[in-house]
């Protein structure tokens, strides 16, 4: 497949903005995919910084928030394709957690171009390189991520109405054990 080799402009102009992309990758598939892009010498933008974890199931959504908080311009989380998890079902848990996080980030006003959750197998070196190029391309025009931009954010009206309605009823406590317990059934 055609992969983008990045011939970035050298230092004729003031250094162009290069986003900082933090990727949290599972050891067995996605990290290996990144290694394969390397051993196949497929160039991609140097915006990427990788953290290796054993399984996407190990990724606490907190890590993503922390990366944004500390100055990441975009975050990628990647794991094995469904059905291929080295630990059988860790990626299914990741899928549920990160889908929720994705909703949360959207709700909090983080542009969706800044957070990515993808499957990358150990054989998908070219695909991995392509993904990084694609993300970099999408994030660059947005400029650096500034968390303070969200301080003055307002709830959409329909949501506000819903929340108000909720206040009037007494919601069941859905916290802790019970809420987590719903995770116990992985999708197949």
């Amino acid at each position: 497949m055609a992969t983008e080799t990045t011939d970035q402009p050298t230092t004729t102009e003031p250094a162009p903005f290069q986003p900082r992309l933090v990727a949290i990758l599972c050891n067995w598939c996605s990290y290996a995919g990144a290694d394969l892009a390397g051993s196949s010498r497929i160039h991609y933008p140097a915006s990427l910084r990788i953290v290796r974890v054993p399984c996407s199931g190990r990724i606490d959504p907190l890590y993503v928030l922390r990366a944004f908080e500390r100055g990441a311009d975009a975050v990628l989380v990647a794991g094995c394709h469904p059905g291929d998890c080295h630990y059988a079902e860790g990626n299914y848990y990741a899928r549920r957690r990160l889908t929720m996080l994705q909703e949360l980030l959207r709700f909090a006003g983080v542009p969706e171009e800044r957070f990515y959750f993808r499957w990358v197998s150990a054989a998908e070196g070219p695909e991995f390189a392509h993904l990084i190029s694609e993300i970099t391309e999408k994030v660059t025009p947005l400029g650096p991520y500034k968390p303070e931009a969200h301080e003055k954010f307002e709830l959409p009206e329909d949501l506000l109405a819903e929340l108000n309605a909720l206040d009037e009823t007494t919601p069941e406590c859905a916290h802790g054990a019970e809420a987590e317990a719903t995770e116990a059934e992985p999708e197949t």
């Binding site: 990045t6 970035q8 050298t10 290069q18 990144a34 290694d35 892009a37 390397g38 051993s39 010498r41 497929i42 160039h43 991609y44 933008p45 140097a46 990427l48 990788i50 390189a129």
Partner: peptide, 14 residues
């Protein structure tokens, strides 16, 4: 190596 020198050139921020 796999995630730096083999995928980024000298002037690409390696």
């Amino acid at each position: 190596r796999e995630q730096v020198s083999w995928v980024h050139g000298k002037d690409e921020g390696a």
